[in-house]
Simulated assay, not measured.
Amino acid sequence: MPEIYYTNFSNEVTVQNDASSEQTTIKAKNNRVDIPVLIGTNILGNLLSAYVGPVGSFNLAKDDNFDNFVQKVNTKSFTVGYQLGLQSEISKVIISARYEGAFSKDQRKFINNIAGSNQEINYDNRSSLFLLGLGYKF
């Protein structure tokens, strides 16, 4: 099942600034190209099949600023995860569900850049995903 796809998602966290009573909302954006290499087998013919395999991700994220915080992307340009799932073909309609987990982390570090502050927030942005798919076979 060869595939390649572009993934774009973001997560938000609100933190209290060390140097003041202000709060900053940090939005960690993730842009990547995913290449899953899945092996599948038919369990009940085309009615039900299962697949599993690794997924390689090329990280496209860059450093960013959030009020008093600077995001330092301390990440590998390539991370590896895994996918497992089930697929069903009824007539020409294909329904699939898969879970994606991580073998390696996508570590981000947010640093408060106000003079004298040493506030750092470490954040793993390689989250687990549950994906649903709907297709039509021509």
Rank of each mutant, 00 (worst) to 15 (best):
M1S: 15
P2Q: 03
E3K: 12
I4H: 08
Y5R: 09
F9C: 01
S10I: 03
N11W: 05
Q16M: 09
Q16V: 08
A19Q: 13
T25F: 03
K27F: 06
K29V: 02
N31L: 10
D34S: 09
I35S: 09
P36T: 03
P36G: 05
V37P: 02
I43C: 03
L44K: 06
N46T: 00
L48T: 04
L48R: 02
S49N: 09
S49L: 07
A50E: 01
Y51Q: 10
G53K: 03
G53Q: 08
S57W: 01
F58G: 06
N59L: 15
A61C: 00
K62Q: 04
K62A: 06
K62N: 11
D63K: 11
D63N: 15
D63S: 10
D64W: 06
D64M: 08
D64H: 10
N65H: 15
F66D: 08
F69R: 06
V70C: 10
V70M: 11
V73A: 10
V73P: 15
T75V: 09
S77T: 11
F78Q: 03
V80G: 03
Y82S: 14
Q83C: 08
L86D: 04
S88T: 03
E89L: 14
K92I: 01
I94R: 13
I94H: 07
I95W: 07
I95L: 14
I95V: 11
A97N: 04
R98L: 00
E100D: 14
G101R: 13
D106P: 02
D106E: 02
Q107F: 07
Q107R: 12
R108D: 10
I111T: 00
N112L: 00
A115Q: 13
A115F: 08
N118W: 05
Q119F: 06
I121F: 14
N122P: 05
N122W: 00
N122S: 08
Y123I: 10
S127M: 11
S128I: 04
G133M: 00
L134D: 09
G135C: 05
G135L: 02
K137F: 01
F138G: 00
